[in-house]
């Protein structure tokens, strides 16, 4: 019981770190494509971010199981890249079908972003990090959820900022992705400030 308690505590810590200090978007710059292209409005950014949280949590969990229960016993660790990708793709497909069928409202808000996420490198990245860092199952859940949440937070902040400065005059050469990357850099610096808050 004590071991489980410790693990849950570790999961919380990892989750917190994944949201702030080790934010997958701002420290590793994964998932930049939708980050720059879908961050014009807070509403759509929230939809995409929500989809990322959901998909990342569950794919990390599924991939952990596939890795530790299938690949490791067979000594096929090198195969994880391909396996993770097909698991993510299949999972997203199934979720899309379920949403489309049972919750048209949610599908309307979230579902149209799902195919975008299938090929999002942040999703695959989170699964690969969880292997490299040798997280346990429970910690992996915390990590997947935290990484998704961190991504959501970053894109929400970015969308908020971009909505604010949509009226301001950005030099011609920096409009669009240019200024977005500069802002992302400043945000990354700010997020480093969280280091040491929880250790």
């Amino acid at each position: 019981m004590n071991g489980l308690g410790a693990e849950i505590w570790q999961a919380v810590v990892v989750c917190f770190a994944a949201v702030f200090t080790n934010n997958i978007l701002l420290t590793t710059f994964l998932g930049m494509c939708p980050f720059t292209s879908v961050s014009r409005e807070v509403r759509t950014a929230a939809g995409l971010g929500g989809a990322v949280v959901f998909v990342m949590t569950f794919t990390c969990l599924l991939n952990w199981m596939a890795y530790h229960w299938i690949l490791v016993p067979l000594g096929l660790e090198f195969f994880r890249f391909i396996l993770f990708i097909i698991i993510i793709a299949a999972f997203v497909q199934v979720v899309e079908m379920i949403l489309d069928r049972f919750s048209p409202r949610l599908y309307q808000n979230l579902g149209i972003f799902l195919p975008l996420i299938t090929v999002n490198c942040a999703i695959l990245g989170a699964s690969l990090f969880m292997v490299i860092r040798e997280y346990s199952l429970i910690v992996t859940i915390g990590y997947g959820f935290g990484s998704g949440l961190g991504w959501l937070l970053a894109i929400l902040a970015m969308a908020g900022i971009r909505q604010r400065f949509s009226e301001s005059r950005v030099p011609a050469g920096l409009q669009g992705p240019g200024i977005t990357l500069i802002i992302a850099g400043l945000m990354a610096l700010a997020f480093i400030g969280f280091t040491g808050v929880l250790s």
């Binding site: 299938i70 096929l76 195969f79 097909i86 698991i87 299949a90 379920i98 489309d100 069928r101």
Partner: peptide
Amino acid sequence: LAVSTVAAFLTLVLILCEGMIS
């Protein structure tokens, strides 16, 4: 075989979903 089984399983899940959910 192991890898093919996993892929086949996922395909099966997708086909089932397609037939039942969609």
